[in-house]
């Protein structure tokens, strides 16, 4: 289809304790899509993202970002982990967490300065959290914590964003705010890969989708492949959703 491939995964296999979590995944994600990864619990959605990002070590397989190995392209990639993966009682402020997004480009030892602080404040403003910049992170609501994580990734100014369930446990206002930011990023030509749970909102939010259940079931444009057939194959039960036209 003539588009550049942003992320390419070849023969990726990951196992915990001899049990395969991901089996022989081949995946090509074209540049500029807003893609959902859907699948039941334990399907390996988070594992897929973590293996692409080198957090988990796969048994086999390789990942390339714009045709080069991931290790050489780190600066092009940003990550939004599940917000439950950290201890929010850590003694620090919202601004400080967002500043962490600049640490990668700073590299070892160098301290963040005015330029980095400015970037962090801009990111906070984009997610509507500027007035909370000095707030202790343990005093933020779940939705606010999620926005802080999003802001931290925005600061990285990457081309490709991986997000692990950014809508989990947030209220409707935050969900709309986040999806608007994601759509804006796509408009700016960024590629977004999002682990997603709410099947009802897939057609509304995303233009690309990957069905995953240990193996890759299907990947492609939402309008072509988001159908009952693939849902049934992925979730194992006779699944019916009304696909909006």
């Amino acid at each position: 289809m003539g588009k550049k491939i942003a992320v390419k995964v070849d023969d990726l296999t990951v196992a915990y304790n001899y049990k395969p979590v991901l089996w022989d995944i081949d995946l090509e994600i074209p540049e500029g899509v807003l893609m959902a990864i859907v699948g039941p619990n334990g399907a390996g959605k988070s594992t897929l993202i973590k293996s692409i990002l080198g957090i988990l070590k796969p048994i086999a397989g390789s990942v390339s970002i714009y045709g080069k190995p991931y290790e050489k392209q780190r600066k092009l990639v940003a990550y939004v982990p599940q917000k439950g993966s950290v201890d929010w009682d850590f003694p620090t402020t919202a601004l400080d967490v967002v500043m962490m997004g600049t640490y990668g480009s700073l590299g070892w030892i160098k301290r963040p300065r005015q330029k980095e602080k400015k970037a962090a404040l801009e990111a906070l403003e984009k997610v509507g959290m500027l007035s909370f910049k000095n707030r202790q992170i343990n005093q933020l609501s779940g939705g606010q914590q999620q926005r802080i994580f999003l802001a931290r990734a925005l600061v990285q100014n990457a081309s490709i964003y991986f997000m692990d369930e950014p809508f989990q446990g947030v209220d409707a206002t935050t969900e709309i705010a986040i999806i608007n930011i994601l759509k804006e990023l796509r408009k700016a030509g960024k590629t977004l890969i999002v682990v997603h749970h709410d099947l009802q909102t897939v057609p509304e939010y995303f233009d690309w989708v990957t069905f995953l259940n240990v193996k890759k079931i299907a990947t492609g444009p939402v309008k072509d492949i988001f159908n009952d057939d693939n849902l049934t194959k992925t979730y194992g039960i006779n699944y019916k959703v009304s696909v909006q036209e």
Partner: peptide, 12 residues
């Protein structure tokens, strides 16, 4: 201390 996985993705 705050986020080990994220630290890895930043290349540290």
């Amino acid at each position: 201390l705050f986020d080990e996985d994220y630290t890895k993705t930043l290349g540290f």
